[in-house]
C-alpha cells in the first residue's frame, strides 16, 4: 500500500462503488510488475532529470510531478533502444516521455513499480497535454 499516492494512482486500486476520497492509498500486488518489460514509445526519458536540458511546457509539468529524482530509485532495469540512424543520447529534450514513464515505474508515481523499462523514441506530430 502506497499511502501517499496521488488520486490518479489510487484509482487503479479503486473498487467498484468505493469513494476515491475514502481510499487510504494505492494498493498493489507486492510483485509490482516484476519480470514484466514495458516498452515506452515516447520522447525518451531523462533519467537524471537535469532542469537545464528541459525546455517546454511538458518539461515543467514533468519536473513538478517527478520532483527531479523519480528514476534514481526505480527498482527494475532500464534499457534504451535506438534506430540505426539515431544518436545514442540518454535524454529527453521535451519531457513528455520522462513524465509518462514515471507513471509506469516511478517509485512515487508508477503503477508497476518493479517493472523493467525499455525506452524507445518516436517523433511527435502534435502536442498533447497531460
Amino acid at each position: 500500500m502506497q499511502q501517499d499516492a496521488r488520486d490518479e494512482l489510487k484509482i487503479f486500486s479503486q473498487a467498484r462503488g468505493a469513494r476515491l476520497s475514502a481510499l487510504p492509498g494505492y494498493a498493489y500486488d507486492a510483485r509490482g510488475g516484476q519480470g514484466i518489460t514495458v516498452y515506452v514509445m515516447d520522447t525518451r526519458i531523462n533519467p537524471d532529470h537535469p532542469v537545464s536540458t528541459l525546455n517546454s511546457q511538458f518539461a515543467l509539468v514533468s519536473v513538478r510531478l517527478t520532483h527531479l529524482q523519480e528514476f534514481r530509485n526505480m527498482q527494475g532495469s532500464l534499457r534504451w533502444l535506438y534506430l540505426p540512424t539515431e544518436p545514442h543520447i540518454k535524454s529527453d529534450a521535451v519531457g513528455h516521455g520522462t513524465c509518462t514513464t514515471s507513471k509506469v515505474v516511478g517509485p512515487a508515481f508508477g503503477v508497476a513499480k518493479s517493472a523493467n523499462i525499455v525506452v524507445v523514441k518516436i517523433q511527435p506530430v502534435v502536442k498533447c497535454l497531460i
Binding site: 518489460t37 516498452y39 515506452v40 515516447d42 533502444l81 534506430l83 524507445v120
Partner: peptide, 30 residues
C-alpha cells in the same frame, strides 16, 4: 514510427519476452 515498431518487435523476439512484454505508445506520432 514503423521503424520504431520494428526495433521493438525485434527486441521482444530476440529475448523471447512475448508473454511478458507490454508496449505503451504514450505520444501521438506520425
Amino acid at each position: 514510427m514503423i521503424d520504431a515498431w520494428g526495433i521493438v518487435a525485434a527486441d521482444i523476439a530476440s529475448k523471447d519476452m512475448r508473454a511478458k512484454a507490454v508496449v505503451l505508445i504514450t505520444l501521438s506520432s506520425e
